[in-house]
Structure formats: structure tokens, C-alpha cells
Design a protein around this nucleic acid. Structure first.
Lengths: 238, 238
DNA sequence: CGGGGAATTGAATACGTTCAAAGGCCGTGG
DNA sequence: CCACGGCCTTTGAACGTATTCAATTCCCCG
């Protein structure tokens, strides 16, 4: 299923959790203490859930490889993709206050995550003084990201703008070698992307075709080569 | 401009900041200490900015009366309303990590806010032990709210669903006497609402008229009486 | 090589937008 | 107190874009 090598983890310095992990890992703690706190690079297979709505919160996560989709389902069973997470990004943030996950997080391809347990939060704080402060900043940063996500979405009212903005957004968030070559890999299905963008799969498909004809992108299944970045920016109205 | 009496503040127990304020206010602190930390119910006139994009963060805020709109403007000067805040709700969350506000927050009518300064965050933590922990939970709660907001928005793809969901959302968040009577007061302009909902003002207007003809709401300028709550829920696809 | 799901393409329809005009609300000034 | 003017809001008709439903093609895996 997964085409990319799951072993190619993102570097810690590109991870949102780095400020939280580092004080734990480099502080004056025994190896046992560290391992009790951090659970590093745990693998999960494509299609499996990292957590489900209703699960009690045990940890927050940083994705180190692969792609995760976040799904919210209403009481009628309709599913809404509320976001994707790429390597270096945070998962589980929404559950700290309620102690219960309010979203489904599913591995789109094979993934790995670092886990920071939230159960003994106060204990960790005793061992690592900067922990709470760093967590506060992390969560505030996440609030900002979510505001931005909403703004980016709501400000764009047609398929061209939405898709162009999405491609640019994914490119910006792909902090690896591939993205340097102006190429992104969309591990999720077209349905997932269309759902996220508030479009029908057919509309997404047509818009991709249109961008291809306009020589803006080169589409090869789940891989997307960005040919004309400037044109994409104009389309995104950015 | 403001029709409602700005003196009718929301009760502290209905405020998201209550868990943070209470330990400060009821702890064993001198009056001076408390007043240094909290800045209570500061008024601001309609049209004034609580903060602007680029302002350095001084405080986070709880709105105690009135309505605030949050605006994100891109480099081309297009403005996107990314949310409204009603009494009891949080403002400024997105700026803690960056130390700089990334949104404009404007008073729609005359408002009042309680301020909790973020500058001496570590100092406050020394005085009030539970402060950081409560702030973490508050921010996580905010992350969840923002996820929900996005889901609620993205899942609804036509004007009827969007508007119905918006009305229900505002009703749920109006924790005062008026809402008990199934009535909401939309202090913001139609343009602001339409912008937020991703519709043109004409479409919003037409949809409101349609709901009125269907006997779902009774529209009296900025006040909205909800007549048929069940029908509204069906329309919202909720 | 064949089967099945995913993705794409095609044509008719429905819905929101656009541009234009009319109506209503409110503060100001006579 | 009423009249005027400006702005916000609502209504109307033509248009454009996304959706719908159907058919076809592509890709992956057995």
C-alpha cells in the first residue's frame, strides 16, 4: 500500500514536538525515565486508527512518517475530513481538555508516531520544568494553525482557488527532500481530498485535469509535480 | 449603535476563563496581586479593535458582553471573517506562541473584556500553581472548538445548511436570558455573516427570507426569533 | 491476464453568483 | 417632528459553476 519508505522519518528539528521532547531527552534524566515518558517512532499500518472518537486520551502524538487523516462524523454517520497531518505535525491536541478524543485519526499509509503520554502530565512537569510552558506554546501554535486553516478554506469559494491553495499548503508542509523538487505526494484518496475541500470527487478530478492542461502541474497518480508555482499562487489568490 | 445594555455581563461561571480566574481571585493573594493579574470588564466601543494583526501579545481575553469579529486579511487586502466571539468566550489564544497577534479582533457593538496578561506568565504560575495546567486545558478546548468549527463549516455545502447550522450554533452559544426565549441577536452586519459563511450577502438575504417564508424564523433586523427549532435541525443536517 | 475499486470524463441540471434596482433603517438637520 | 440622505439590506433576472448521474478508463493486486 505505502509507496514511500516508512523508515524515512522526519528529522526531530523539524517536528513541532521538538521543544517538548528535547528537554526530556537531553535533561539529566535516566534512560528509564526518558523511556517512560517518550514512546518513539511507533509504527502503525495503513488503514488503522491512531485513535477514535470516544477513546480516552492517553497521549499526544507527533507524526514522524506517513500521512494521517482526521475525520469527524456526525450522528447521522456522515464523515467529514477535517484535516490531514504530515510528518512533524501534532495529533491529539483536541483531547487534552476533554480527556476523550473527539475525532477519528486514521493512518492513510503506513505511519510512525512519537507519543508523549498525557496521563502523568503533572508528574512530567516535575521532572521537566519547561514542559508545561512548552505545551502551552505548542497548543497556542496549534490554535493559530487551525485559525489559518479555517481562513484559508473559507476565503476560497471556487474549486480552482481551493485546490491551488491546498496544493501550496501541502507543499509548504512537506519539509523533506521531495518537496525541494517541487513535488508532493498525496497518499490519501481523491475522495478524502474532495471531502476535505468541500467538493465532489468529480469536480476535484476535473480541476486537476484542468491544471494539468494549463501546464501548472504534472499528475502521476498520487504524486504531483508542481511545474508553475507562480501560476498556482495566482490561482490560489494568495 | 449597540442596542443591548453593555452592562449586562455574562456570569463568571459561564465563562471559559473561569477556571483560570477563580484560582487567582479566591486564592490567598492580596488585593494588589489580584488586580495586577486580572483586568476586569474593560469596556471598548463598537468599531474599535481589541487587537490587530501584528500587535504584540499582551493578554488573552474573555469577552463579557457584546460581540467580537475575528478577521484575517491576506496580502491582497481581502478580508475573511474567521469567527465571532460571544460573551464567555476566549480571545487571543492564537498569539501566545508567536507573541504576536495574527488576526484582527474588532468590537462589533460595545463590548467588555476581562484581561489576563501573558507577559509574566511564569510569575503568575509561581503565585497560582494550577494556572499553567488550566491554561493547557483551555487551549486544548479551544483547539477542539476550532476543529468543530471547521467540520461544521466544511460539512455543509449549500446555503440552507450553512445558515441553519450557524443559527443553531449562535443559539447554543448564547448563554443568557434571551436565548432561553429562542431568540438570538446578531449584532454583526449581514456582510460579516455572509463573509463568514462563504456566501454573498444576497444569498444570505435570500436564504433568510426563505426561512422566514417557511415559518422557521422570524426576522426583525438584527434580532432573530427561532420558531421551528426541529426544522432548523433538519435543515442543518445535524 | 483478469477482476474490482478508484479515478476520470461526459452531458443535463440545480444552485449560488452577478449585476442591477428597489426598499428599509437610522441619524442628521431643517 | 418630519424630511432628507446615506448605507445597509432585500428582491429580481441572467449567467456561470459545481453537482448529479451515467459511462468509461485507469491502476493495482491477485
Amino acid at each position: 500500500m505505502a509507496k514511500k519508505d516508512s523508515n524515512s522519518h522526519i528529522a526531530c528539528e523539524h517536528c513541532v514536538l521538538d521543544n517538548i521532547c528535547k528537554p526530556i531527552a537531553v535533561g539529566e534524566h535516566s534512560f528509564d525515565q526518558i523511556n517512560n515518558i517518550l514512546d518513539r517512532r511507533q509504527p502503525l499500518l495503513a488503514g488503522e486508527h491512531l485513535y477514535k472518537k470516544g477513546d480516552s486520551l492517553s497521549s499526544i502524538y507527533a507524526l514522524t512518517s506517513g500521512t494521517v487523516k482526521l475525520i469527524q462524523s456526525n450522528r447521522k454517520g456522515n464523515e467529514q475530513v477535517v484535516g490531514f497531518r504530515f510528518p512533524g505535525e501534532l495529533l491529539g491536541d483536541e483531547a487534552i481538555s476533554s480527556k476523550t478524543h473527539l475525532l477519528n485519526a486514521m493512518a492513510v499509509d503506513d505511519i510512525s508516531v512519537c507519543k508523549i503520554p498525557m496521563k502523568g502530565l503533572d508528574d512530567i512537569a516535575k521532572i521537566v520544568p519547561a514542559f508545561q510552558r512548552n505545551l502551552i506554546e505548542l497548543l497556542s501554535h496549534q490554535c493559530n494553525t487551525l485559525h489559518q486553516q479555517f481562513a484559508s478554506y473559507a476565503a476560497r469559494n471556487n474549486a480552482d482557488e481551493r485546490l491551488a491553495a491546498f496544493i501550496l499548503n501541502v507543499l509548504n508542509r512537506s519539509k523533506n527532500e521531495i518537496s525541494q523538487a517541487h513535488e508532493i505526494f498525496l497518499a490519501m484518496s481523491r475522495d478524502d481530498i474532495a471531502n476535505y475541500l468541500g467538493l465532489r470527487r468529480e469536480t476535484l478530478s476535473r480541476t486537476l485535469s484542468k491544471f494539468q492542461k494549463m501546464n501548472i502541474i504534472n499528475r502521476q497518480n498520487k504524486a504531483l509535480e508542481i511545474i508553475d508555482l507562480d501560476h498556482l499562487r495566482i490561482l490560489a489568490n494568495d
